[in-house]
Simulated assay, not measured.
Amino acid sequence: MRVILPGAGRRPSRATGGPEYNRPVGDETTRRSRRSRPRASVLSILGEVLITLGVVVLLYVSYQMWIGDLIIGSQKHAEASALVEKWQSEPAPSPTTAPEETAPEATPTAPAETVIPVRAQPEHGEQFGVMFVPRFGADWQFTIAGGVTRSDILDRGEIGHYPDTAMPGEVGNTVYAAHRWTSGAPFDPIDRLVVGDAIVIQTQDGWYTYRFRTLEYVQDTEVEVLSPVPQQPSVAADERYLTLTSCAPKLNMLERIIAYAVFEDFTPVADGPPASLTEGVAA
């Protein structure tokens, strides 16, 4: 007689387990599920890398154009203020040259003309002045150093003086360069100058006030803007000019933006700050 065991001939239930419900890991169903997942391609990985790099570059440019300029600009304003305070606490040495002297034929009763002191050409990197442009704001002030090299002058947020161009107050053309973006961007607002705006340079001797006249755009090879009479290299200078140079348009070096100004007057230290420092100061 055949003995039939309980449950014989029936499919095992989920509760009792069995081959159908206790398959090992990695069986056919699991492998099929794994095969259905899309694999990352080389192009998708490359795309993610490029997006990440783009975000990093965007953040860097944003820092350079706004945050970095604000930080460096604030530092340079403080440095310029410290230099001015140092001059106020120290007696000004005698100027190196005084090109204008009272004419021998002048009568003793004639009013004496103000002698415009002109200092010697500075050493490379030597800070000799501070520039103020009221149109650019009450706090706008940057130190001026000898030379226009990028790494040690312009990239440090200073205004550079072109070697061998005239010094402040000297007959001829005193020429300066600075960045329009990055490194504090001293000349960023140069295109906002209005005819008659004051451009003031302070040295230990006093304040030299120039008045803005015109802007122009030139190629970077047009060195005639550095001539004693701007754009007229064959003409001898008999007036005092000031020229500001920077890149145009911003963010590249395709051309140069040039601002020209003419000398108005000199104010000695003993007379105190001139009115031109506060006339039309932008908020």
Rank of each mutant, 00 (worst) to 15 (best):
R2T: 07
I4Y: 11
P6Q: 10
R11V: 11
A15K: 11
P19K: 14
E20F: 07
Y21V: 15
Y21R: 12
R23M: 11
R23G: 13
P24R: 15
T29F: 13
R34C: 08
S36I: 10
A40S: 09
L43N: 11
L43S: 13
S44I: 14
I45Y: 11
E48C: 05
I51V: 15
T52S: 03
V57G: 02
L58W: 12
Y63M: 09
Q64W: 09
I72Y: 04
Q75H: 14
Q75C: 03
K76I: 10
S81W: 00
L83H: 05
V84L: 15
W87F: 09
Q88R: 14
S89Q: 15
E90S: 09
A92S: 15
S94A: 13
A98S: 12
T107K: 13
I116S: 06
R119C: 00
Q121L: 13
H124F: 05
F128N: 01
M131A: 08
P134V: 10
A138K: 07
D139Q: 06
Q141V: 01
F142Y: 15
F142G: 01
T143E: 12
T143M: 07
G146T: 08
V148T: 12
V148G: 05
T149S: 14
S151R: 12
D152A: 12
I153H: 08
I159M: 03
P163I: 01
E170A: 15
G172V: 05
T174M: 13
T182S: 09
F187A: 05
D191N: 08
D191R: 02
R192Y: 07
V194S: 10
Q202L: 09
T203N: 03
D205V: 05
G206W: 05
W207V: 06
Y208S: 00
F212M: 04
F212A: 12
R213L: 10
T214W: 08
T221V: 11
E222R: 15
E222V: 11
L226C: 02
P228Q: 03
Q232S: 09
Q232V: 00
P233K: 10
V235P: 00
E239N: 10
R240H: 08
R240Y: 03
T243K: 04
T243D: 05
S246D: 04
P249R: 07
P249D: 10
K250Y: 01
L251M: 11
L254W: 01
R256Q: 06
I257E: 00
I257K: 10
I258P: 02
T267L: 01
T267H: 00
P268N: 02
P268E: 06
A270T: 12
G272M: 11
A282N: 06
A283G: 07
